[in-house]
């Protein structure tokens, strides 16, 4: 095909290729990386090129680049520190991931299979595991102590291995992919103990985007299985109650338009 592409369009093409290559291995797509690997000396064109690339991705792949949210301040200490510091709080992270823009129906596993990297089975196991961990974190109000996480893992027979991999390795990968984050509280009393004592797990930026409350709710629905009409309503009510205000705060925007999340339910 003969296509006359403008310089911006050529850059957008490179950006699309870069984004697809990064996403393949769940490497976060960074603004700096885009500037270095795609734009070169055209750094100022970032916005323009990004807009064209987004259009390509949406029109052809049914995907788009979504910027990850800034890391939340989980602890009192962090919040104090942020309040004390003179610098402007950061408003954007400059880190993107590729997400699907297709309607829900088109995302079924019958159409989009688990990726073959490293293998379809391993990938499916990984997706299932991080979805489960994110779900239990969300069900616990958005944070989960290490001890409690270990208890859940024990109960699901995942304390040592997930599939063919050691659990620790998988958790490490989840941290590096941004599905979860953890915070280690350091003070005098805990130094003597094993660090596990004061570790708290949170949902990471990628976890919020890719799984979020919707994913967690979906997980719960499939665990509870097919319900009759009454049971279904009951379950939905429970799901809403379980995710509580603490979690909904963080995810509120994402579900703003979804019906049923509002408050017109009889108490």
């Amino acid at each position: 095909m003969d296509i006359e592409a403008s310089p911006d369009e050529q850059l957008a093409k490179k950006l699309v290729r870069y984004a697809l290559a990064c996403d393949f291995s769940r490497t976060p797509i960074r603004r700096d990386g885009i500037k270095e690997r795609v734009l070169g000396d055209q750094g100022r064109a970032f916005r323009r090129v990004l807009d064209i690339a987004q259009n390509y991705l949406r029109q052809i792949w049914g995907m788009e680049l979504r910027e990850l949210p800034i890391r939340e301040k989980h602890t009192l200490e962090d919040k104090r520190k942020a309040a004390r510091s003179q610098s402007q709080p950061k408003t954007s992270t400059g880190v993107y991931i590729l997400v699907s823009t297709l309607p829900e129906a088109y995302r079924s596993p019958a159409i989009i299979p688990p990726s073959r990297t490293p293998s379809a089975d391993a990938e499916a196991a990984y997706v299932a595991f991080y979805t489960m961990v994110i779900t239990v974190i969300l069900l616990n109000g958005g944070e989960l102590s290490d001890a409690k996480l270990r208890r859940y893992l024990h109960r699901t027979n995942a304390e040592d291995n997930v599939g063919a991999e050691p659990t620790e390795e998988v958790l490490k990968r989840m941290l590096s992919h941004g599905y979860v984050t953890k915070h280690v509280q350091r003070d005098e009393t805990s130094q003597a103990h094993d660090s596990g004592e004061n570790t708290t797990w949170y949902v990471g930026p990628r976890g919020q985007e890719e799984v979020g409350i919707d994913g967690a709710a979906g997980m719960i629905r499939s665990v509870w299985g097919q319900q009759d009409e009454r049971g279904g309503e009951e379950l939905e009510k429970k799901i809403r109650a379980s995710f509580g205000p603490a979690v909904a705060r963080g995810m509120g925007e994402a579900n703003g338009e979804e019906d049923g999340w509002g408050g017109d339910e009889p108490a």
Binding site: I60, W61, S100, L102, Y106, I112, P113, S115, R116
Partner: peptide, 15 residues
């Protein structure tokens, strides 16, 4: 070119 084509392409790239 519609959502069906896009889903097909996503599926192909995954495999």
């Amino acid at each position: 070119y519609n959502h069906g084509h896009r889903a097909f392409l996503q599926s192909f790239m995954g495999r």
